[in-house]
């Protein structure tokens, strides 16, 4: 039934490989359209900020497409945003990956390297332990693929923690903004439920998200 599915918007960056994100939302009965420019970011009911690649490349793409202020306004207003992996990292002020490059700076703090001696990239499944007040992030195993991470939850955000050479921020949320260092779209049934929870919080429920949320699975 084309046209009858709710539509959310994804920020396209040249470095992002988003087939898995699109497939995950498709399974949840949601149409994902590209967010073409700041007006659409402004108007959209729910925006996904994915991204793989470097902090510098991600921010350059944000600037070149004129999206920096629009994303900042959404996040500052607590309006529905799901930031994944690099998408979460660029919410911060800066990253050791790209010294001197300014992030979106809607979350105070910096992104750094994992401590020496641990496997890098962190590639695989790790336990996520959220603050009990989190509305979308829940305990469970998430799939990660990252070489950098935030070591501290920014003031004003609720955090979820994982361990890889010490604790790091696996996810965080504020209002309807949810940021995941892990890949919910690759985190099996647990990840699908997380996406459903964010859609629900964003006012974009579908029959599939209701089924998932009501079944009590995961």
């Amino acid at each position: 039934m084309p046209g009858s599915r709710p539509v959310i918007h994804v920020v396209r960056t040249p470095t992002a490989n988003i087939a898995s994100v699109l497939a995950a939302f498709d399974r949840l009965g949601v149409e994902v359209a590209p967010a073409e420019g700041p007006d659409m970011i402004e108007r959209s009911g729910a925006v996904v900020l994915p991204g793989v690649g470097s902090f510098d490349a991600g921010m350059r793409s944000m600037r070149e497409n004129g999206l920096v202020e629009a994303i900042r306004r959404r996040v500052d207003g607590g309006r529905p945003v799901l930031a994944i992996c690099l998408g979460m990292q660029i919410l911060f002020e800066s990253s050791e990956e790209s010294p001197g490059v300014e992030g979106l700076a809607v979350a105070a703090g910096t992104v750094g390297r994992f401590p020496a001696g641990v496997r890098v990239p962190q590639m695989g499944w790790n336990l996520v332990k959220p603050d009990p007040s989190c509305r979308v992030l829940r305990p469970g195993h998430a799939y990660y693929a990252n070489s950098f991470r935030a070591a501290a939850t920014p003031p004003g955000w609720l955090g979820a923690w994982s361990e890889h050479g010490g604790p790091f921020v696996g996810g965080m949320e504020r209002g309807s903004v949810v940021a995941c260092q892990f890949h919910p779209e690759l985190s099996g049934a647990w990840g699908a439920r997380l996406l459903a929870g964010w859609l629900d919080l964003s006012g974009v429920p579908t029959p599939a998200t209701r089924d998932l949320l009501e079944s009590g699975a995961c």
């Binding site: 499944w125 305990p139 099996g188 049934a189 647990w190 699975a217 995961c218």
Partner: peptide, 16 residues
């Protein structure tokens, strides 16, 4: 090991 569907029913009990 990771349980397929989440934390409940993990073959190894609590993942901790």
């Amino acid at each position: 090991v990771r349980a397929a569907g989440g934390l409940e029913g993990s073959p190894g009990g609590s993942p901790d």
